[in-house]
C-alpha cells in the first residue's frame, strides 16, 4: 500500500461514514431522549430531510466547482435573495399580466438569468482585474444585498401563485420537487466535473495554476463559467424554495455562504482548490441537515447545532492535518 493511500481512502469515505454514525447515534439516542414517539429513521422524515437540504445543497454544488477551481464565492446568499425577489416580483409586473400561468416560466427564466449574470459579473471581475475572488465576492456580497433592498426597501416581497405552490409541493416517485432538483444538479455537475474538458481543466487550474497556464489552458474563461454556474445555481435554489414559500425578506439568504462553505469543506473539497467532488459535497450537505434534524429530534435546540457544526468543521481540519503529517525529519517552517 502506498503511503497516504490509507488517509486518502479515509478522507474519501469519511463523510459517508460520518452520516452513518449520525444515523445510528440519533436513532439510538432518540429512543431515550426524543420527545416524540416517531423513530428518527422514519421514511417520511428522511424524505423531508432531503427536501430541506435542497436550498443549501444546490448552492453548495456550485460552490464545490468554484472552490475546486481555486476560487470562493461569498456573494451567493445575496444572489439567492435577488433571484427570489425577481421571481416573485416579476409575476406581478403589468407587462406579463396577459400571460396567465405562463408567467411562471417567464419569471423562472428571469430569475435564473439574473443569477447567472451576477455570477458571471463576479467571474469577469476576478478574471479581468486579477483581484482575489475572496475580495471581489466579499464586495459583491454587500453590493448585491444593496440591490435586494432597492426593490422593496425593508419590506418583504410576497406573491403566492397556487399553480407554482402545487408544483413545488409535488412529490414525483416519492421525492419532493426540491429533492429532484438537488439530485439533477448533483448528477449534472458530477458529469461536468468528471467527464468534460471544462471540468477537468477546472481541476487542473485549482491544482496547479502555473502548470495549467503553461499547458495553454485559458484560466479566465473557465473561472468565469464556474462563477456563472454558481450564480445560476444560487438562483435555481431560490426559485425552488420561493415557488413554495411565496414570500421573501430582504435579509433572506444571509449567512448562506457560510453554511454552504461548511458543507463543501466537510465534503472533502480542498480550500486551496484542485481536489474535491460534488458527491462529497452532497454528503456534507446531508450530514449538516441530519445533524440539525437529529439534534432537534433528541431535544437539543438550534444553538447546539451551530456549536456542533462549528466544532466538527474544526475537528475535520485537525484530523486532516494529522493524516497529512510527513516524516519527522520535515523542515519546521
Amino acid at each position: 500500500m502506498q503511503p497516504g493511500a490509507l488517509s486518502d481512502a479515509l478522507k474519501k469515505g469519511a463523510i459517508w461514514g460520518f452520516i452513518v454514525l449520525e444515523l445510528i447515534f440519533f436513532s439510538v439516542a432518540g429512543e431515550y431522549l426524543s420527545l416524540s414517539d416517531n423513530a428518527f429513521m422514519d421514511y417520511e422524515n428522511m424524505l423531508l430531510l432531503l427536501k430541506q437540504s435542497a436550498p443549501i445543497g444546490i448552492i453548495a454544488m456550485g460552490m464545490t466547482i468554484v472552490m475546486i477551481n481555486g476560487n470562493i464565492d461569498l456573494s451567493v446568499g445575496a444572489t439567492y435573495a435577488i433571484a427570489a425577489i425577481i421571481l416573485l416580483d416579476s409575476m406581478t409586473w403589468p407587462i406579463f399580466a396577459g400571460l396567465g400561468d405562463w408567467v411562471i416560466p417567464v419569471a423562472w427564466l428571469l430569475a435564473l438569468l439574473a443569477g447567472t449574470m451576477l455570477g458571471a459579473l463576479n467571474g469577469i471581475i476576478v478574471w479581468k482585474t486579477g483581484v482575489d475572488a475572496f475580495i471581489v465576492t466579499l464586495g459583491s456580497m454587500l453590493g448585491f444585498r444593496g440591490i435586494v433592498f432597492m426593490f422593496n426597501g425593508e419590506n418583504p416581497t410576497s406573491h403566492l401563485n397556487w399553480t407554482l405552490v402545487d408544483f413545488a409541493e409535488a412529490q414525483v416517485l416519492g421525492l419532493h420537487t426540491a429533492t429532484w432538483f438537488l439530485a439533477i444538479v448533483t448528477l449534472v455537475l458530477w458529469y461536468v466535473m468528471t467527464r468534460t474538458v471544462h471540468g477537468r481543466n477546472a481541476y487542473a487550474i485549482g491544482d496547479n495554476r502555473e502548470a495549467a497556464v503553461n499547458a495553454g489552458i485559458r484560466v479566465g474563461p473557465h473561472m468565469m463559467i464556474n462563477f456563472a454556474i454558481i450564480g445560476f445555481l444560487a438562483a435555481l435554489s431560490a426559485v425552488v424554495f420561493y415557488s413554495e414559500s411565496g414570500s421573501v425578506n430582504p435579509n433572506d439568504g444571509q449567512l448562506y455562504e457560510l453554511w454552504v462553505i461548511t458543507a463543501v469543506v466537510l465534503g472533502g473539497t480542498k480550500i486551496t482548490g484542485g481536489a474535491g467532488s460534488v458527491i462529497g459535497t452532497l454528503g456534507g450537505v446531508i450530514a449538516i441537515q441530519l445533524l440539525r434534524k437529529g439534534l432537534g429530534h433528541i431535544g437539543a435546540d438550534t444553538s447546539t447545532v451551530n456549536l456542533v457544526i462549528g466544532l466538527i468543521l474544526i475537528a475535520v481540519l485537525v484530523l486532516d492535518r494529522q493524516l497529512n503529517v510527513k516524516g519527522k525529519e520535515e523542515l519546521k517552517v
Binding site: 474538458v197 477537468r200 481543466n201 481541476y203 487542473a204 491544482d207 502548470a211 481536489a275
Partner: peptide, 22 residues
C-alpha cells in the same frame, strides 16, 4: 509542473484533452 489530483493521462495531455461532442 503537474496537477497531482489528476490522472497520468490528463497530466500528459494537459490543455489538449481529446474532445467529443459537447
Amino acid at each position: 509542473s503537474l496537477a497531482e489530483e489528476l490522472t497520468v493521462a490528463e497530466n500528459i495531455y494537459l490543455g489538449e484533452l481529446p474532445k467529443k461532442s459537447f
